[in-house]
Design a protein around this nucleic acid. Sequence first.
DNA 1: CAAAACACCGTAAACGTTTACAGAAATGTG
DNA 2: CACATTTCTGTAAACGTTTACGGTGTTTTG
Lengths: 339, 339
Amino acid sequence: MAEGPTITTIAERAGVSIASVSRVLNGLPTRQETVRKVMAAAEELGYVRNAVARSLKSRRTHQVAFAMADVGNPAYLAMLRQIQPVLKAAGYRIVLHSTDAVVADEIDVLHSLGERYVDGLIMSPLRVTGRHLQMLATARAPVVIIGSVPEGTPVDNVRADSRTGVKLAIDHLHALGRRRIGMVNGPPDTVPGAARGAAYIEALEACGLPYDENLVQIGDFYRAEGGRAVAALLDRVPDLDALMCANDLIALGALDVLRAAGRRVPQDVAVVGMDDTDLAAASWPSLTSVSLGSAERGKAAAELLLDRLQHGEREPRVVTVPPRLVVRASTTGEEEGGT
Amino acid sequence: MAEGPTITTIAERAGVSIASVSRVLNGLPTRQETVRKVMAAAEELGYVRNAVARSLKSRRTHQVAFAMADVGNPAYLAMLRQIQPVLKAAGYRIVLHSTDAVVADEIDVLHSLGERYVDGLIMSPLRVTGRHLQMLATARAPVVIIGSVPEGTPVDNVRADSRTGVKLAIDHLHALGRRRIGMVNGPPDTVPGAARGAAYIEALEACGLPYDENLVQIGDFYRAEGGRAVAALLDRVPDLDALMCANDLIALGALDVLRAAGRRVPQDVAVVGMDDTDLAAASWPSLTSVSLGSAERGKAAAELLLDRLQHGEREPRVVTVPPRLVVRASTTGEEEGGT
DNA sequence: CAAAACACCGTAAACGTTTACAGAAATGTG
DNA sequence: CACATTTCTGTAAACGTTTACGGTGTTTTG
């Protein structure tokens, strides 16, 4: 923790100017003799370049921020897992923010871009409000949003297609002969909540199934509340034979409650989750889940950001990642499904 | 992305010197009139303090690095989840590193402390080598290690007590009447692998059970390989009646394989995991698991680091977090344990 | 051998802050 | 009103780099 060596220390020891030291360290053309002296001095002193000073001068921090709604949510984790190596390979460090989906915190993060401690930001907000859009329009560094943002917002955007995702799931359930398909959703004022709710209605109708608002129950996006929502739904609709859950955590809550109620999964009630997190494979019965490509979205977001950092201004781009239905035992596991 | 306003821009507009601007912005005593002018100018220009310049001058970055072995591992995630709010509340940002447990990467992270882009580091290495110790001794910023480090290493240290943890589990299994208790462990050259392996032998003997090396199978710390290890173990020891797994992922692999082999959990084989991750509660049967207090360790590490950052030099401290056995269905779930 | 060309190097300015110091303005005191 | 205090402000230096520019010293050229 002693005062570290600087370029000046090296210059003195090597008997050259700081400019020469800098040149040697950056590989600019220099006399062999000087290179040798500088390298030797740097080596002996254990010199390491000061990133802060370098950033100040170069106006590049080689840091990128990732603002996730919730450190605990496996979907964001899956994104992070892909973002990390892409950015690392390009020489960027990741600064992590957890906003707990609080709008004020997200605005703070956008505002803090003005501090210029990062070169760019990847953000995945749960809600997109007017203030978000306003901040995005004046952001002081490039931003990539994972999630949907209105046309014309000047940021790169990576979208999931939850509409198609829900349709895949409903079609699957319909094909299995299910006709009373309930939905447990998160708050409708969130982007995913709104999209998934609308998609559910649309998909039902595409199958020729009537939409019955009794079939829909709203909670939050977590396991405990998801379970409570399912309990309420079961009470109201005893002949329920399938459940579309707005994410995997809700689906786990559903499994808990169904098991407690003595309903067999999938024989009595088939369950589909969403996000295809690690939990889906870990649960038992394992969970059929709609993968919205969290991993792919993370990767795409990192690549978009890098591209923008390297090539500067250009049209905002939108990448849509197609969903995929991962079928597991909670819909088709007759042989091994059980109480 | 236009050139942002600086202290100089404000000074010009307000008709004062940059020193006055800085004073106002930092709340140092200033004439009311000046405060007003500066605030107004700052407001109009949308000024935000440049964190890089400030860091350079103050020699404080208000950033802390967290180096986790693997972004995908839920145990590290649990730590992160606790570290995050503690540091955030104290005004620190988190820079995330994923070292994939590669020693060279960990050394790199330690080395990069010399760049002074962070004020401190929390690191959780899987192995601690001589090079680690050497780098730790000369680290250019305070470091807190989560995991065990030899006496005398000049860093704060937060330890789990896996020895007691394993003992809790083995005692539990023994009390349930199990006598052929196998162990599936990770590599013995990792710190956790070594500790857990030794603790297993010790705990068996404390119960008066003979140690049989056939009962131990080594793999890695992941699900697939864990499953393979269990399969091998079952082949070799058909009368196995309990399994101590070195972490939850291995235990999930065990559940997969036991189910496929038609062994009932827990009736035929009881299974205990370790780390008590979210997966343990999600699996079915839910997994009895030894909590090594990942969350508590994360919190303790963050607090140690903050304390050190605020109060400077002092004796290195060691905090040990006691383990806790979380009993679930995989050892005692007769009523609902399944095929 | 003088002049031109070149290779290398050092000085100094800049990045955007904070802060020690001294000078100016305002206030208090006799 | 002269002076001593106090309060406020501006100048300049510093943090550790990068880099434009001009000056040496060496080599090439006619």
